[in-house]
Amino acid sequence: MVAVAAPDGDAATPDDLDDAGGADDADDADADAPAARTTIAVLRVSQGGEALELVRWVTKPFATEAPGPRGATHYVLEDAVTGERLAAGPCPLPRLCTCPGPDHPRGCLRVRHQGVVRLKLPRLAPVERLTIVGPDGPIATFTLDEAS
């Protein structure tokens, strides 16, 4: 068990417990339909999972698998032009160490203070808005514009 070392006070965004991030009304029917293309997004995670940076994203010409349950952290994909919700799915993030030191070797694994993950998403619109939602609400939003 792990007690969380955090400054006293409430830093999180308010959210309904049953509707983290307000994403539950994303179109599940669309989310279950495989997309003809896939976006692979490389994300850098820091500050105990509370800060995200989009390092790079690429679009691939193959269909993604239908996304599974959303888990503790999930993505919401919207058409950036129309605002239509396109898909939602899981976005598992690494559990990062919050101690002030450097990364710790742990056998042949690493205890990380900053992580990098790859997220696979269906590609459904020319300009998409990608929002990563944690248990306390949105963590970060990025625009995925194929023209850029």
């Binding site: 007690a3 969380v4 409430d10 965004t13």
Partner: peptide, 8 residues
């Protein structure tokens, strides 16, 4: 309504 993680 704000939430803060205290344990996991």
């Amino acid at each position: 309504g704000r939430r803060r993680q205290v344990w996991w």
